[in-house]
Design a protein around this nucleic acid. Structure first.
Lengths: 336, 336
DNA sequence: TTGTAAGCGTTATCAA
DNA sequence: TTGATAACGCTTACAA
C-alpha cells in the first residue's frame, strides 16, 4: 500500500540509484530524467521513508522535546517556540509530555533513543525523582541532552534557564519595601531545582532585613494549580497563621490564593500582597493586575535551540541563566 | 556510538536472532539466555531502533497529530488528552503545529507519511486553502485521516466535532430572550467550516424571530485574539455601527471585545451582551464571568481516538457531532 | 533452543 | 549519466 522508491523507479524505467539521485536533487543526473522521476513520484504521492533513510544515513534530523504537559501556557509557549525554531533550520521534533510521571519520563526518553534523535531538550519536572540515571541511556547512545528551565543536580548536562534566584530577590525586596513582612511561598514540590532557587532567594533576601524564611513558610502543593492553591490558602487562614505576603509558583496558583483571600474578607494588596511567577495571562482578562516575575521565554527558546545545535555539532557549551523582569501590578502596591 | 542489537549479541556470544527473541520477550528461548541478553542490553543502554523495526515489521505504532498551535488552550487540551489516550493503548504520537500556514500543513502531512504513521488526526485550520488535495497523499499511502473539530469540505474523511450549529442556536436564543436584537459575530476566517456553522446557526435562529444576520454582521479578524478583537470593536464603535450583542470565536477574543466596550463607556451586559465559544479560563481569574458555549473536549478526545483506531483496523466509522453546553454568565444577564 | 539468511526502503560506492 | 550491489539494524522463517 505504501509507495516506495522501487515503485517509482520501476514506473520510470530507471534504477533505484538513479531514482534516489533524482528525488534528492543530487548532481550527476540527466535533467530530463530527474524531471520525469520527480513528476512520477508526485503523481503517486511518494514520500521517502524516514525509517529507511535514517537507517542508512544515520542522521535523523529529529529533536526530542519533553515537557511536563501542554496545558500550562509556559510549557506550551516554550514548545511552540522551540518547534518553530528547529523547523527553520531543517529539524523536526518529537514532542512528548511526562505528566510529571517518572515512568512516563523514562519511557519517553527511551522512545527518543529508539528514534535515534539527534538531541534531546527536557524540562525536568519530576518531584522526588527516584533515580534520574535512566537519563544515562542518552549518553550511552551519544545523544546530547539539554535541560530547559531547570536541571537534575545528579545529571551532568548543561541547562538553559532563568536566573530565578536573582529575580526572586528583586521581587522579595519590592514587597519588603511595600511593607510586607511575613512571607509565604506556595508552589509545587520543594525538591525541584527551580523551587530551591526561589527558597534560597527569598530567605537570603529576608536575611538582609533580619527576617527569617523558615521551612514552614513553604507551602507545598501536590499540584500547583488554582484549586489546590485556593484550598491551601483557606487552610492557612483557618489555622490562624499570620502572613501578609504570598509568592506563588505560577499565575493560576496566584489567582487561587487571591480568590481565597478575597472570599475570606481580606483585601489585596492592603492586608496581603500577592505575586506570582510568569506573565502569560492577558491582563485585560484578569480580575486584578498581579505583580509577577516575567521570564524571557523568547530568549530561553532562542538560546536553548542554539545550545543544543552546538552540542549536536560537538561544540562545548556553558550553562545559561537569563535575567527575569519584575512587573509590578496592583496586587502588591499598597496605597501609602 | 549508537548501541545496536549486534553489539549486544556479540557481547553475549549469541546470534542476532536469539538476541532479538530475548529482547522482544518471545517464546522459544532459554530463560537463562534471555536474562543474560536483557541484562547486558540494559547495562549498555540498548534501545531497539524504531527505524529498523518499522522497516521490517511495517508497523509503526505512531500517530500523527496536527493542530494550528499549542498556545491556545483548546488545542493544547485536545493534544494532551489525545496523547495520553493513545499512549494508554500502546501508540506514540508525533505532534506538530501548522501555525495556520498552508505550507507548513502540507509539509507536516508529508512528514507523517515519511514516518509511516498508522493514522493522522488533524485540526483543519487553514482559512482560504488553495488546494487541500495535498491530503490525498495520505490516501495514496493507505494512511487513515480523521478531522478533529472541523473538516475540509472537499476532502473525503470522517470528522469528530461539536455540534456547533445547535449550540450557537441555543446561545442566540438565550441572548434574544435577554432582549438583545442586533448581533455581531467576531472571529477568524469565515471560510472555515466551524465558522460557517456558526453563521448558519445565528442567522437561522434570528430568522425565527424575523431578524436578519447579514454579511456585514460577521467581523472577520486576520487572527482571532485579544488585541485584534479589541481594535475591531473600537473600530465598530467609531464607525457608529449599532449593535447590542456580540458573539466571539473564543475567550480571548471575547475579552478583547469586553475591554474595548468598557473602555469606551459601554456597560456589559446592560448596553451590550457578550458571549464566546469555549470555557477554559478559570473563572476566578476573570474580570467578568462570561456567557459561553462549552465544548465537551473530553468526549471529543475519547471519540476521536476511538474513531481513528477503528479506521486503522479497517472498520467503518461515521461522523460524530457532540452536544455543546450553554454556560450563562454575567455578560449576557440583564437585570430585568 | 539456537544460528543463518532474506528482506524491509533507503543511500553510497563503484563499475559500466 | 546510469545501474548493480552492499550496508544500515532489525524481525522472522527456516534450518540445524
Amino acid at each position: 500500500m505504501k509507495v516506495t522508491l522501487k515503485d517509482i523507479a520501476r514506473e520510470c524505467g530507471v534504477s533505484l540509484g538513479t531514482a534516489s539521485l533524482a528525488i534528492n536533487n543530487r548532481p550527476g543526473i540527466n535533467e530530463e530524467t530527474r524531471r520525469r522521476v520527480i513528476s512520477i513520484a508526485e503523481k503517486n504521492g511518494y514520500q521517502p521513508s524516514m525509517n529507511a533513510r535514517t537507517l542508512t544515513t544515520k542522521e535523523s534530523n529529529l529533536i526530542g522535546l519533553l515537557v511536563p504537559n501542554l496545558t500550562n501556557l509556559v510549557y506550551a509557549t516554550l514548545v511552540q517556540g522551540i518547534e518553530v525554531a528547529f523547523r527553520k533550520i531543517g529539524y523536526r521534533m518529537i514532542i512528548a509530555t511526562t505528566g510529571n510521571n517518572e515512568e512516563y519520563e523514562k519511557s519517553m526518553i527511551e522512545q527518543f533513543v529508539s528514534f535515534r534523535v539527534a538531541g534531546v531538550i527536557m524540562y525536568p519536572s519530576i518531584a522526588r525523582i527516584q533515580n534520574p540515571h535512566y537519563l544515562d541511556i542518552l549518553k550511552k547512545n551519544g545523544i546530547p541532552l539539554l535541560f530547559l528551565a531547570g536541571y537534575y543536580p545528579d545529571i551532568e548536562a548543561p541547562h538553559c534557564m532563568s536566573d530565578i534566584y536573582r529575580g526572586i530577590i528583586e521581587l522579595t525586596s519590592h514587597m519588603y519595601y511595600q511593607g510586607y513582612r511575613q512571607f509565604i511561598y506556595i508552589g509545587g514540590c520543594r525538591d525541584i531545582v527551580s523551587n530551591q532557587m526561589k527558597i534560597k532567594g527569598i530567605s537570603e533576601c529576608l536575611l538582609n532585613y533580619d527576617m527569617q524564611f523558615c521551612d514552614a513558610d513553604y507551602v507545598e502543593l501536590v499540584q500547583s494549580d488554582f484549586h489546590n492553591a485556593y484550598e491551601a490558602t483557606v487552610g492557612l487562614i483557618a489555622s490562624g497563621r499570620k502572613f501578609d505576603a504570598v509568592i506563588t509558583a505560577d499565575a493560576y496558583t496566584g489567582f487561587g490564593v487571591y480568590n481565597a483571600l478575597v472570599d475570606n474578607g481580606y483585601s489585596v494588596p492592603q492586608d496581603v500582597g500577592v505575586a506570582h511567577m510568569d506573565n502569560l495571562i492577558e491582563r485585560g482578562i484578569c480580575i486584578i493586575h498581579m505583580t509577577c516575575l516575567e521570564q524571557n521565554l523568547a530568549k530561553i527558546i532562542e538560546e536553548s535551540v542554539d545550545m543544543l545545535m552546538h552540542m549536536i555539532n560537538n561544540n562545548e557549551v556553558s550553562n545559561i541563566e537569563l535575567e527575569t523582569k519584575l512587573i509590578v501590578g496592583e496586587s502588591t502596591l499598597r496605597e501609602s
